[in-house]
Amino acid sequence: MKEKQTAIILSQREIAPQIYNMWIETDLAEQAKPGQFLCIYPKDKSTLLPRPISICEVREDRKALRIVYRVAGQGTREFAGYRTGDTIAVMGTLGNGFPVEDAVGKKVFLMGGGIGIPPILQLAKEIRGEKQILLGYRDAHTFLREDMEKYGSVYLATEDGSVGVRGNVMDAIAENGLEADLIYACGPMPMLRAVKAYAAEHSMRAYISLEERMACGVGACLGCVVKTKEVDHHSHVKNARICTDGPVFEADEVDI
């Protein structure tokens, strides 16, 4: 059940330059699945639209959610100023999430690039299977790395080569000679295109999480669509709604 409600901020800190880590108390945590997201509403009335932000982690008692986000504009700048005890308007939980059950008994790549890394954490916690976690960063600010190390073998790539393999997560696969049966990925579009190509080349299934500018977050406005290979069941054209039919899609089903 989707709901808009007021959540309380339990803690917030900057964990890398312009990357913030916030825990919020909300009963939306009870239904949260890895790969789902929240819409968070700025209080400033000049910035009306909600900011879609992925769920990074669900607290064990399922009473709180963790989000990790980058300050990208006016709305997220406002969020970064919030302190413990402040309230925040959130709607959730939104989107389909990653299909974790597909990984049972398989060797999987969990791949995150940049601000696409946070949703990989809850996925790594919940997924059953042999986990190889590939994380791509700009530089040595390898946020969430230690959290990830609790749930699988972590391989790093950095654009400046300061930590791990120089390059991106695809380079980390090659350099480390890794193999898998199944891929789960979230990151910038060039990375997701590379994942899609890699999966096609190796005849593997890949689940990729997409993002797009959104307005409603619930599938009504048709703002955030992705082109699909086949005619979509809901839209009856070759477009699917990222907020509702996604954000997670099988890579070979979408035209990115």
Binding site: K45, S46, L48, E212, R213, S235, V237
Partner: peptide
């Protein structure tokens, strides 16, 4: 008949609106 609509981005926020 079905219409596919425009390419994305399709929405943008502006001051006090969209």
């Amino acid at each position: 008949v079905p219409w596919p609509g425009n390419p994305t981005p399709r929405v943008a926020e502006v001051y006090g609106g969209m």
